[in-house]
Design a protein around this nucleic acid. Sequence first.
DNA 1: GCCGTTTTCGGCCCGACTGTTTTCAGTCG
Length: 583
Amino acid sequence: MPRANDEVARALNELAVLTEIEEANPQAFRVRAYQNGVRAVSGLSRDVSTMSAAELQQVKGIGKAIASKIREQVDTGRMGKLEELRQKYDPGLLDLLKVPGLGAKTVQLLNDVLGIKDLDGLRSAIDEGRLRDLPGLGEKTERNLKKALERLRETSHENRMPIARALPLAEEIVATLDLLPAVQQVEYTGSLRRFRDTIGDLDVLVASDDPEPVMAAFAELGLVREVIAQGPTRASVLTWDGLQVDLRVVEPAHIGAALVYFTGSKAHNIQLRERAIKRGWTLNEYALSDAETGAVIAGATEHEVYDALDLAWVAPEMREDAGEVQAAAAGELPDLVTVEDLRGDLHDHSDWSGDGRSSLDEMVAAAAERGLSYLAITDHAENLRINGVDRAGMLRQRKELAQLQERHPDLRLLHGAELNVGRDGSLDYDEQFLLGFHWCVASVHSHFRLEPDEQTERVVAAIRHPAVNVIGHLTGRRIGKRPGIELDVEAIFDACVETGTALEINCNLDRLDAAAEVVRDGAARGVTFVVSTDAHHTQELDYHRHGVRQARRGGLDKAQIANTWDTDRFLEWAGAKRSEVRT
DNA sequence: GCCGTTTTCGGCCCGACTGTTTTCAGTCG
């Protein structure tokens, strides 16, 4: 996300929280409008500081008032309305709202009656037993808040978990519950099923006629540290590493509606419900049903629900209220790429790179086993001091690869390299040597903190190099660990289209780079993508399944992904750029 | 504050769980 968007989103979010306190109601329409604004800004790949108020208003969720607030923030560095509310409410109140169990109403009550303005104030009030006498509160609430405060100190609730940690955890929970005889179906849902980069909490959905043993088994999972809430069909637990996991059990006849409901996004669901209402129906987690008679119209499968609403089934990765409902209604959803569509992998390391773990022939054999049609070995080039391969090494590797090619006639092997984009956009080796490779990935591995125009310039220089076929992990981000370089993505798209250079979708869960919104916007501009594992070990060739979901989040059709093409077409395209230079 | 194949005004999703209530309010997702 461009830095300006990040700043604006933060300001709008604070505005939403303060307004929530002001109106003492999280449902207040103004609060929701601001929250929608945060989502709208976060979902833009374009830099908001370059957009006029009129252009901003074109974005769904941004109207006249929010557009002018954004311009004000960009032009003056402040937002009048926000400053006003900051004057009025103590910043500690924002911390109080983050305490699980405390909402706007109670925070205002605490402030008005007891003068509690921050976490310390709350702590002393609890210790002195002053909360229990407030209307609507009691000893139990006091105890719960005390616990919530302790928990807050250990695990920061606002830190979302990177998908690289959440997905394995979810798969483990799903696999364990799936073993129970009472469980007919179990899926993780929520933002993880939509394949967001980070996950706030984990949602698990079970279809069962007999919820009791499921609830019991869930609460007793080894990774559960504490049960936060537990009813007959719903429970929330906290894992040892601070992730909240919510379980919901529904009858098998309701699993379709429940999957829709719990997969979200919230905004996508609201779109569906509004559609239902217009037809005189209601949609909840149990079913789509007639509002008058209660007669069930659909609910057993997701497809049934979408179908009844005159919509094509929308893939979970696209359910972000970014126009997918309208597209589903018009029959204009993209035919999303699937993992079976991928025919090759184009960013792979061997132990010739210092960080590779499998040998060349192991990598090649593993790719052949998986039925790939082509494979590019792209070990690190020499400028990467620790891991790089020098010229002599690369030439030896090329010979070895040629021998392996004879043993694997059905797998076309390409000798490539992962080049390092230098601070000034320069690359390893020299142009003649680079043109000797079949396939070159160029990636940023250093100088992450340059200004956006410098970053853009160096990457564009790499894109313009005749030997470079694709830019690897565009920003170098590590989700939850390192933000990645800032770029003018529009300039990148233009250079890619002009030169016939692709952008990579890196399958590593730590990276998933380019980001989904960049993929979406780039595809609209005509950029070609490749989905590559960046495997450093044979097992990582299976990471295609992650990259494909990232591509689907970006709305990609297989036609836009070069490594779905058959070998001849792919080779012709890959060779086109460098042959232009030779002639 | 936003939005429009019924709308430029009048709507804006809905149910589980908890704790405090004898019928419901607040919070959460």
